[in-house]
Amino acid sequence: MTKQNKPSVLFVLSVDTEEEWDWKTEFPQHNVQVENIQAIEGFQRECNSIGIRPTYFVDYPVVNNSQSVEVLKFIDQAGQCEIGAHLHPWCNPPMTAENDEFASHVVNLPIDLVEQKLVNLLGKLRTSFEKDICSFRTGRWGINSAVMGLLIKHGITIDSSIYPFYRNNYFNCDGAPVEPYWPDLSNPLKAQLQNQQSSIFEIPVSAGFNHAHFTLCDKVNNLSNTRLLSFLRMPGIMWQLKLLRKIYLSPELSSATDMQTLIKVLLKRKAPIIHMNLHSSSLISLPYNNHPFTREQMLENMKQTVSYLQEHANVTFCTLSEAKEILTQHQGIQ
């Protein structure tokens, strides 16, 4: 395939830049460990060799640690990344007594408490990095109209809290677009019907299935996860037979082969952007890491996937804010 025949696509890598801990224990509130941030130096060199300029979504324990700030500030000042905000409510002041699964999701908290936490986080980030912060992701994903209103109020112009096709007992992203969009502020899981707002832009991570008709695939996937079919192990059977695979573009969760399959489908669907995601804690060896790949395997998954993308598309590497500018100004997304 010649360069002229290849589709053009943006590539963004976002990194949830946060503390490390054993997910089998309670959410850490005090004496939070951020040793993984020191591994970002080596990771950034890997990114530089490929051409990737990550967007680091930084949470409070990281920005509250001077050594971690020094690592990230050096990369930022070299123009090799973007610094965004990442809100983990359990370890972002003000602290509360509630520290369970329900309270770990920002969308479940009282909105005045969310605002206090957001103000503290953004203030710390803007002071530490001596620059404005305009991109944001909730910890553990999910967004609602109240939280999105706060983001606009406090100067955030790009959100990336949508995790397409994801649902659990505490929130879901059912029906959310898989491509970047201007959200309906009354329901951020929907794109606005017309030019109603241009204050905040949503850029979800890339996710989908091994077939191009995502809506139908999602319905079949939901059906297969009903109690009876799940008991009959239907999701696993369909996965093994490659009849239906839900794939997230994360080298922590998906093999290079599966991510390449997803990219092939996304390019077929004429996706304007490929958005990969990972967590900074995966950059160190953790005995309690629940991801299926080692650090070395994860990095290899990332490299192979990006190489595949470059073979099949004309790729522009950019940060999240740069992607927003390109998509909204040059391509006229409404």
Rank of each mutant, 00 (worst) to 15 (best):
F171Y: 13
N172W: 08
N172M: 09
N172L: 06
N172E: 12
C173S: 09
C173W: 03
C173K: 09
C173V: 09
C173G: 03
D174M: 08
D174P: 08
D174W: 05
D174A: 07
D174T: 07
G175I: 02
G175S: 04
G175P: 09
A176E: 14
A176W: 06
A176Q: 07
A176K: 00
A176I: 10
A176G: 05
A176F: 10
A176P: 01
P177K: 10
V178E: 03
V178G: 03
V178S: 02
V178R: 03
V178I: 06
V178F: 00
E179L: 12
E179W: 05
E179R: 15
E179T: 15
E179A: 13
E179Y: 04
P180E: 15
P180C: 01
P180N: 13
P180I: 06
P180L: 00
P180V: 02
Y181T: 05
Y181C: 01
W182S: 06
W182E: 04
W182A: 04
W182Q: 12
W182Y: 12
W182T: 07
W182V: 04
P183G: 13
P183C: 15
P183K: 11
P183L: 13
P183D: 13
P183W: 15
P183S: 15
D184E: 15
D184I: 11
D184S: 11
L185E: 00
L185N: 00
L185R: 04
L185D: 05
L185C: 00
L185W: 00
S186M: 00
S186N: 02
N187F: 00
N187D: 02
N187Q: 13
N187R: 02
N187T: 05
N187V: 01
P188K: 14
P188V: 14
P188I: 12
P188Q: 13
P188D: 15
L189A: 00
K190G: 12
K190V: 09
K190C: 10
A191I: 01
A191T: 03
A191K: 11
Q192E: 15
Q192L: 08
Q192K: 11
Q192M: 09
Q192C: 06
Q192H: 09
Q192T: 09
L193Q: 12
L193R: 08
Q194P: 12
Q194E: 14
Q194A: 14
Q194W: 10
Q194L: 12
N195D: 12
N195Q: 10
N195K: 05
N195Y: 08
N195P: 13
N195E: 13
N195C: 06
Q196N: 10
Q196D: 15
Q196I: 11
Q197V: 06
Q197P: 05
Q197W: 06
Q197E: 06
Q197G: 11
Q197D: 07
Q197S: 14
S198T: 10
S198K: 14
S198P: 02
S198R: 13
S199P: 04
S199N: 11
S199K: 14
S199Q: 08
S199E: 14
S199W: 06
I200M: 12
I200K: 03
I200D: 09
I200P: 02
F201G: 05
F201T: 09
F201D: 00
F201L: 05
E202Y: 03
E202P: 02
E202K: 08
E202L: 07
I203P: 12
I203R: 07
I203K: 10
I203H: 07
I203D: 04
P204S: 11
P204K: 07
P204A: 09
P204H: 07
V205G: 03
V205H: 01
V205M: 15
V205D: 09
V205P: 10
V205K: 04
